[in-house]
């Protein structure tokens, strides 16, 4: 009981008394207006020595040749762009999840990256069993939701379980976002608050639950999956949203090209996302299964106005 009262007082102190600081202005996104072409080349990743280089991958763990192809392309790209970590936006494994499946659907295709010391940080999608929390290569330490500071630059990632948004998770997220003093706050989870997908589309319930916290606490970038394609959503509420649900699964032709949300989309092949944060800028490339850069640009983080 005393423990509970102590936590109650702490919660009130966090939620009610401590000022969150000024809400920052919107992100600025400078994209390619269309997929890179010979006349409008991609925005190259600067590949600076001390920057944070990372990748994002989602909806991949089906053991298909497409998943293996994307994994091989990630390995190939890493040879010249040495990303240190991969944020997984869920559906890390489809179907059965026996120890053999962990090998076939994860450890084998990404073995070169694991061997090179790349760390994968998983969030759980609706196809992911809870045992994944304890998997050595997912770095979840038994938790359904967690945050971690990136090894370089002033960046904190927040991995959320959007399939089971218990009120305690929302309380945790608010406290964690408030406590975070990093310049860059990046959230990732499975269900997209905004999506131009015909199959799933925007998850308005998740949006209503999480977005007010992202706005209030200056989250600059959100990564999601669930819809099986790549999409850069036009900034919403000052936040840059990306969908990277194309790491193995593909829902070909599923993007509604008339959607007012659509910044850029790619739904004709699988893809992963590579990014580099250097100071206030995040350079990004969406890279297809065959190595083509299908979207690129620069996001400038939210800063106090």
């Amino acid at each position: 009981m005393r423990n509970f009262l102590g936590r109650l007082v702490l919660f009130i102190a966090i939620a009610g008394c401590a000022a969150p600081g000024p809400t920052a202005g919107p992100v600025e996104v400078r994209p390619q207006s269309a997929p890179p072409t010979a006349s409008a080349p991609e925005v190259a990743l600067p590949n600076r020595e001390d920057s944070l280089k990372f990748a994002v991958l989602g909806d991949f763990g089906d053991g298909s040749s497409r998943q293996y192809d994307v994994a091989a392309m990630m390995v190939k790209r890493r040879a010249t762009f040495p990303f240190a970590l991969v944020a997984l936006v869920g559906d890390n494994m489809y179907g059965s999840q026996t120890p053999r499946d962990y090998d076939r659907k994860f450890a084998i295709p990404y073995k070169p990256l694991l061997d090179a010391g790349v760390k994968f940080y998983a969030s759980l999608g609706n196809h992911d069993e809870l045992g994944q929390r304890f998997y050595e290569h997912f770095n979840m330490e038994g938790k359904r939701y967690y945050s971690f500071k990136a090894p370089k630059e002033d960046v904190r990632f927040f991995a959320i379980d959007s399939t089971y948004l218990v009120p305690e998770q929302i309380t945790w997220l608010e406290a964690e976002l408030q406590r975070s003093k990093e310049d860059w706050k990046i959230a990732y989870f499975h269900h997209p608050p905004y999506s131009s997908g015909d199959r799933h589309g925007s998850d308005e319930v998740v949006r209503k639950t999480l977005e007010p916290l992202f706005v209030k606490y200056n989250v600059s970038v959100v990564f999601n999956g669930h819809d099986h394609f790549y999409e850069r959503v036009k900034p919403q509420q000052g936040i840059a949203y990306f969908i990277v649900g194309s790491g193995g699964k593909l829902r070909r032709g599923n993007i509604d090209r008339g959607s007012p949300l659509l910044g850029s989309g790619f739904d004709t092949d699988n893809a992963f996302f590579a990014a580099e944060i250097d100071g206030d800028e995040m350079f990004f490339n969406a890279i297809s299964r065959v190595g083509k850069v299908v979207d690129s640009g620069v996001v400038t983080r939210r800063k106090p106005e």
Binding site: G95, S96, Q97, T98, N126, H127, D128, E129, S162, T163, Y164, L165, V166, P167, Q169, I170, H191, V205, V206, T209
Partner: peptide
């Protein structure tokens, strides 16, 4: 069932149901 995906349960629904200890969901 091994292959069954988890159904999504929104916060607004979970907060109407009895709160559960960590062992169950």
């Amino acid at each position: 069932p091994d292959d069954a995906p988890r159904s999504t349960i929104p916060t607004q629904v979970l907060q109407m149901l009895p709160k559960l200890p960590e062992a169950v969901e």
